[in-house]
């Protein structure tokens, strides 16, 4: 693999393809842009370390990267619970946000805020299946649950979002 040999073109191609994906995953899991950048960077440090041992075709590399990123996200979520900060990340209550005549960007802010209000496991299921577009089997394996349990998390998460965004969903 070119990455393992330090091939600049291969490295750039991998970064171009995977960095946005890892950043999006971390951003939606953590609800914080700066922390998401840290996680995305840390995922790639891990990638470079493993590069010499990669064998093409023996792993679904994208899933492995998701696993690393999710672990790092959960480390940070745990740390937040242990060390409450005076200045929490950008996670407004969606109910406090404007709900009439919303532009697309305002809508997105409200949706992100609602997503971040969900319990972490429900959020994770929606992020993996809806935004990262992983299959149910991949998502369930990443989360260490059965497909049935994944479906339950997804359904509860979506119900929670509907409740948080009720005024928008009905309109």
């Amino acid at each position: 693999m070119g990455v393992a040999q330090g091939d600049p073109a291969a490295i750039q191609a991998l970064v171009a393809r995977k960095l946005p994906r890892m950043l999006a995953l971390a951003r939606r899991m953590l609800g914080d842009a700066s922390e998401a950048e840290d996680v995305a960077q840390e995922v790639f440090v891990r990638v470079w370390r493993q590069a010499p041992t990669w064998r093409p075709g023996t792993a679904r590399f994208d899933t492995w990267m998701h696993r690393v990123a999710l672990n790092l996200c959960y480390d940070r979520l745990r740390r937040r619970r242990e060390i409450p900060t005076a200045d929490p990340p950008d996670r407004p209550d969606p109910a406090d946000l404007p709900d009439r005549g919303l532009e697309q960007a305002d809508l997105a802010v409200r949706v992100d805020a609602a997503l971040n209000r969900l319990p972490a496991r429900q959020r994770e299921s929606i992020v993996l299946c809806h935004y990262q577009e992983l299959s149910n089997i991949e998502a369930a394996a990443l989360m260490g649950v059965s497909v049935e349990a994944l479906e339950s998390l997804l359904a509860r998460g979506r119900r929670g979002l509907k409740a948080l965004l009720a005024d928008l969903a009905s309109g």
Binding site: Q5, G6, I11, P20, Q41, W48, A108, H130, L165, A169
Partner: peptide
């Protein structure tokens, strides 16, 4: 509604930092 949330675009700074980390590791 979910699709109104757009994924963040990595900054050039972040992209460069990641590529630099590859060079260091190699």
């Amino acid at each position: 509604l979910l699709d109104t949330s757009r994924p963040p675009v990595p900054s050039a700074f972040l992209r460069e930092a990641v590529i630099r980390s590859a060079r260091r590791s190699h």
